[in-house]
């Protein structure tokens, strides 16, 4: 049991990061904090993929007679794309927050909802 827990320590840590992100996203009313939670959530998935590709004692995947075990490079390549997607999402989110601030003069979700209901 202990071996199982210790052997998967990277996954436990990733789960913690992911849940902290998701909880921030759900529990905060401040839109900026929501975006921060979202970014953490996405980062946890990126870490998950990268640790998925790591092989114990594996080296970089370059053909050489001295090495036989290689780590899988594909998840890292995939995550380059996912990082770009994450950056784009966060940037778009920030742009929206700026425009929300301009038109509502607030970035607190409950205040905005109240303003919308009054209108």
């Amino acid at each position: 049991m202990l071996e199982y827990v210790a052997g998967h320590v990277n996954y436990w840590l990733i789960i913690v990061v992911m849940m902290v992100g998701l909880y921030t996203l759900i529990s905060r009313t401040n839109l900026m904090k929501k975006l921060a939670g979202l970014a953490m959530f996405q980062t946890a998935v990126i870490l998950f993929y990268v640790s998925l590709g790591k092989v114990k004692d594996g080296t970089v995947p370059i053909v050489d007679d001295a090495y036989e075990i290689y780590s899988n490079p594909l998840p890292q390549v995939l995550m380059l794309t996912a990082i770009v997607v994450g950056v784009a999402t966060t940037a778009l989110g920030f742009a929206l927050v700026i425009r929300i601030k301009e038109s509502y003069d607030s970035i607190e979700e409950d205040e905005i909802n109240k303003l919308d209901q009054d209108a």
Partner: peptide, 18 residues
Amino acid sequence: RQALTASFAYLILGTIGA
């Protein structure tokens, strides 16, 4: 201006989904 908040809510949920 509700379009902005609608879009933001969609962004959050859509990103969680993706």
